[in-house]
Design a protein around this nucleic acid. Structure first.
Length: 437
RNA sequence: GUGAUUGUAGCUCAGCUGGUUAGAGCACUGGUUUGUGGUACCGGGGGUCGUGGGUUCGAGUCCCAUCAGUCACCCCA
């Protein structure tokens, strides 16, 4: 057999222990916040049926779904003729796909288990998802999402709580200068309605989302080339120049859906303002749109302003996701934490506490079989007391054992040799100070 | 799908306008110290220079192709 160079697929990663200690620190923080707000854990499988996933994320999203080839002689069951192309072939030889996010599988879960669930249902989920994207900074083909969703209620109190939840987590993680951007898809619908371009909604909204990146002129250019009329663009201008939510009411007076969206927006903002946030800022941003097109109401996106990276979290309300699976009129709302990006932000700003990567507190040096046997009961006692400890497995040179302890960040090394066994008094060395007794 | 950029030891890189046995630091390992790490000193192993072709007396260095990584656009966490 030939030696293959060890490698892993594009956009996927190994995590070393050092990295895992830090990742777990983030996971734990998020998890305890979720539980503190009354969310309960669930998990769903890595793969879903392709049909469950397709059509929920837009055309672009569908292309980025990782599909899993059927097992066995799949080609013999396929129908091949001269019209067969990749797309029609894929349909015949693929029936499973890796999950693309946690929200759609969750909607499926809710419908499938509806008889066992008490509504409103609050769950959290922290699992990996896969996207066949081109990797770059803060963007991988396998990454983790931590989602909290509540489904089965239209109450806007949920939105208010989710904003607080974001604030709680980022405050606990000590990430400064966090903006929680908020908008409402209904407000955008109202605006597009006034522009007389309802059929171009998706296009307009995607273009609008780029405003802070490419500037107003380019946005208008792109919209015009997509068929938006000049008059419509001046309406857009009025909206963009209105910073205050209250002032939008007069603009959207004639749009039923727009007014509804504004009322929702106002409720959330007012209540959050009343309760106050610890460290994050709630920012109304009319240009916030979000690509995933299952959102229907309030939408949220979180940015860490001190680091150049995409959003570190996002979410919103979806009114109709479960109807795809045959359960109508169930509204849900949720948020997602992008923990890989949060990791990068914390790394860049050096926000990780330095005492989170210690595993073994006490190590027994190994001087030989008899000495090792003497240590084992002591080890048992330490462990029973909840002190993480280990015995170096072989009696190699002291230098090597000490180096091992040092690199692993062990705090104390206990020497048990002949003298100690006889006297019963052990030598303990503090690895930090070098002191020994 | 589009564009830019990089590929030399396990890791981070140096290698000038092509010139003989390809270097450093870190890591690993042996010793100074037969029971002591993190600091010191001495030694050792490890590379067909991403791959394939071409130019040349001679290619890590120049040209072409190909593969892989990284970054940006699209889109997104």
């Amino acid at each position: 057999m030939s030696n293959t160079k060890p490698s892993i697929p594009k956009g996927m990663r190994d995590f070393t222990s050092e990295v895992m200690f830090r990742r777990n620190y983030i996971f734990e923080t998020v998890k305890s916040a979720f539980e503190c707000y009354g969310y309960a854990p669930i998990e769903t499988p890595a793969m879903e049926n392709v049909k469950t996933l397709t059509g929920k994320y837009g055309d672009e999203g569908d292309r980025l779904i990782f599909k899993v080839l059927n097992s066995g002689d799949y080609l013999s069951k396929a129908n091949l003729d001269e019209n067969t192309d990749s797309k029609s072939l894929t349909k015949q030889i693929v029936e499973k796909a890796l999950r693309f996010d946690l929200t759609v599988p969750f909607a499926r879960f809710v419908v499938q288990n509806r008889n066992d669930i008490t509504f409103p249902f609050k769950r959290y989920q922290m699992q990996n998802v896969w996207r066949a994207d081109r990797p770059q900074k803060g963007r991988y083909r396998e990454f983790y999402q931590c989602d909290a969703d509540v489904i089965g209620t239209e109450s806007l109190i949920c939105e208010v709580e989710l904003v607080q939840l974001y604030d709680d987590v980022f405050t606990k993680l000590n990430i400064p200068n966090v903006d929680i951007c908020i908008n409402n898809r209904k407000v955008l619908s109202g605006m597009v309605e006034l522009m007389g371009a309802t059929d171009l909604f998706d296009q307009i909204v995607i273009t609008l989302d780029k405003l802070d990146k490419i500037g107003i002129d380019k946005v208008k250019e792109e919209m015009e080339s997509n068929g938006v009329k000049k008059e419509a663009l001046s309406i857009l201008d009025t909206f963009l120049n209105t910073k205050n939510v209250g002032d939008l009411f007069s603009l959207l007076e004639n749009s039923l859906i727009g007014k509804k969206g504004l009322e929702e927006l106002k409720f959330v903002i007012d209540n959050v303002t009343k309760l106050g946030l610890q460290s994050a800022n709630l920012v109304f941003d009319i240009t916030l749109a979000r690509g995933l097109n299952y959102y229907t109401g309030c939408i949220l996106e979180v940015k860490a302003n001190d680091v150049q990276i995409g959003s570190i979290g996002g979410g919103g309300r979806y009114d109709d996701l479960t109807s795809n699976f045959g359960l109508k009129d169930v509204s849900g709302v949720g948020v997602s934490f992008g923990i890989d990006r949060i990791y990068l932000v914390m790394e860049e700003l050096a926000l990780f506490p330095d005492n989170i990567d210690v595993s073994t507190k006490v190590m027994f040096a190994n001087f030989g079989d008899d000495e090792a046997a003497f240590c084992l009961p002591l080890l048992k006692q330490l462990r029973a007391a909840g002190i993480s400890s280990e015995l170096y497995p072989t009696s190699t040179k002291m230098k090597k054992q000490m180096t091992y302890a040092n690199n692993k960040g062990v705090q104390f090394v206990i020497m048990v040799g002949e003298d100690e066994m006889e006297s019963g008094i052990l030598s303990i060395k503090n690895m930090e100070s070098g002191e020994q007794r």
